[in-house]
Design a protein around this nucleic acid. Structure first.
Lengths: 336, 336
DNA sequence: GAAGAAACTGGGAGCGCTTCCAGCAGACGG
DNA sequence: CCGTCTGCTGGAAGCGCTCCCAGTTTCTTC
């Protein structure tokens, strides 16, 4: 049985019980060299007898390493994290951190208090590293992070500069894929509803759309700017329909918006995909269940989290990993 | 401008610059009494001049308080957290923690490594408190948590005992609401697809169903046991249809399962709600978008997170909060 | 104006762990 | 048998902060 006394078991007690010095005990805990086999075993026995677990705080103070990394979401919207997207990122991050001794601290920097905290964190090394998903355009935190002492890897890229270490999804390539697919299936008057243009995901997807149409020699002028929300998607579709009644397809920069857009299309009496084909982006769970099921671009969200964590680990280990762009792929369903 | 030198600014430096002792400086940092106004101001000036931020680790070691609480999800399925449910809980938790100085550590205890870590945490006070959402039946961790030294609040209740501190949704009441609604709309042969019976959410919802039918004097024998998954819901529905072809309504213990069930119903040529009414549970985002939109029971997920955090804070403050059961409510849509 | 209370002040002892370093013992070759 | 190496040991100095305590100053009050 392990000890259940209230007080914590300390290294000193272990050392005493094993009949060695604290230094020696410490060495075997961290299995460092310079300990004879006999003492090593004595200490190990004492550890299990006493149920000793090192005090992480004391260790952190002594080693100047916190033993924790932060997953930070910087956004002006407190609800962002409610997006399943982040939950999946977190799962990915967790899966690789689980192999290490590092804790995962979640920092939703949505209020100004949260922002301040993240800021202090970046300035004063209260964590061994941070993964930053910055969700709005010219987030000052992103700049701060980039020149911070603590290792930072970005999830997605800020709009105003390219960070040194990041992992992102191939938004541009995905958008291109989607648009090419529309071209390949015979559409010629292809519109787009973009995402927020102050997020790189928004601009990159728009670029992909433009590229694909340029290559095909088609007109890329049927554009309305959206905001990634379902409602915004609906409004954008109305505007599109008003300005370009001849469109026969629309590439929508997110599934949420695509859902709003489809609602408007149906209301306008258009059939999908008969009159107009619709393609979304993200492949959220919902996409499989719309009427008709939504063709969309899937990105490997958990991988994104996993790779961010791996990259951070590499950074902490003193390596210099190269940025990573994760592939996206087209998931073909009935809406196109 | 704040200082940008590599080394951390320490309290000693602040004290020196302000011309006071370290003790005095410490007192003003923690705004404790017994400091003259002059010194207080001198220290404050030094703090801003130097850009001093207290070292959380050192403080933790000195005060024996970690400054962090853990949100732990114990489950045998690594993907649980991908469920939007937890993301929302996390948002709620974060919203109240943001008002405090506490960090939020996320601990997905899914692998055995994660389990071990959580276990050590409970045994050795490496956090000031933990919120535990235990997702499968007789999780040994739940027992361990209950008798741990560190404050623990449960999210949901384990099946095999009632913890001292918990917040849960009124699963039973919600199920009853849903079933009563079916009765009230004229259904008489009401079946149910239950959730996993090794989770309290599963058993409680089943009980609510039984109660409502007992009160109405109707037969509660049309039961198939499900597993909360979409696929499982479909299979359960097939079985239900085979065994009780006369059913005119089904209360399904989760939206995911309800979606699977509806698919099967349609395949069987049944109209919804014409031939059979369907009610789900949870009100996930998807529920609004099914064909037809799903009537379901909503639970206040973010509140759940918020209340867990509040309760934990109270516990840490030495109070003895009482368990909390959060109301659920019926969201009526077209499937019933 | 003296005695006692009240408010401030800084020294110093930790919190539990890591790590440098000087000291030692045993092994080995000459 | 002595000098040199190698590998073990434990003492001690921190890591940066809190907080107790004894000493000092200032303020009351009669």
């Amino acid at each position: 049985m392990t000890d259940h006394s209230r007080r914590q078991v300390t290294l000193d007690e272990v050392a005493e019980r094993a009949g060695v010095s604290r230094s020696a005990a410490s060495r075997v805990i961290n299995n460092a060299p310079h300990v004879s086999k006999a003492k090593r075993e004595a200490v190990q026995r004492a550890v299990t007898d006493l149920g000793y677990v090192p005090n992480a705080t004391a260790r952190a103070l002594a080693t100047q390493q916190v033993g924790a990394v932060v997953l930070a979401i910087s956004s002006d919207n407190p609800q962002v994290f409610a997006d399943p997207f982040f939950a999946e990122v977190a799962v990915g991050v967790n899966s690789v951190l689980e192999e290490t001794e590092l804790e995962l601290i979640l920092q939703l920097a949505t209020s100004s208090r949260g922002q301040t905290r993240l800021e202090q964190l970046l300035r004063t090394r209260q964590a061994d590293g941070v993964m930053l998903m910055s969700m709005h355009g010219d987030d000052p935190l992103a700049q701060l992070a980039e020149k911070s002492d603590v290792p930072v890897v970005f999830g997605g890229t800020p709009t105003n500069f390219e960070p040194q270490y990041y992992v992102d999804a191939d938004n541009r390539g995905g958008a291109r894929l989607a648009t090419e697919h529309l071209v390949a299936t015979g559409r010629r008057r292809i519109a787009t509803i973009t995402g927020r243009m102050d997020e790189s995901a928004g601009t990159a997807r728009y670029k992909g759309y433009q590229e694909a149409l340029a290559v095909a020699g088609l007109d890329a002028g049927r554009v309305v700017y959206g905001d990634f929300s379902e409602e915004g998607g609906g409004q954008a579709m109305e505007q599109l329909l008003a300005e370009h009644p001849d469109l026969d397809a629309v590439f929508v920069a997110s599934d949420q918006m695509a859902i709003g857009a489809m609602r408007v299309l149906k209301l306008a009496g258009k059939t999908i995909p008969g009159d107009v084909a619709v393609v979304g982006f993200n492949d959220v769970a919902l996409a499989r269940h719309t009427e008709p099921p939504l063709t969309t671009v899937a990105q490997p969200i958990q991988s994104l989290g996993r790779e961010m964590a791996r990259m951070l680990l590499a950074l902490i280990a003193g390596e210099s990993p190269t940025p990573l762009i994760l592939p996206t792929r087209l998931v073909q369903r009935a809406s196109s």
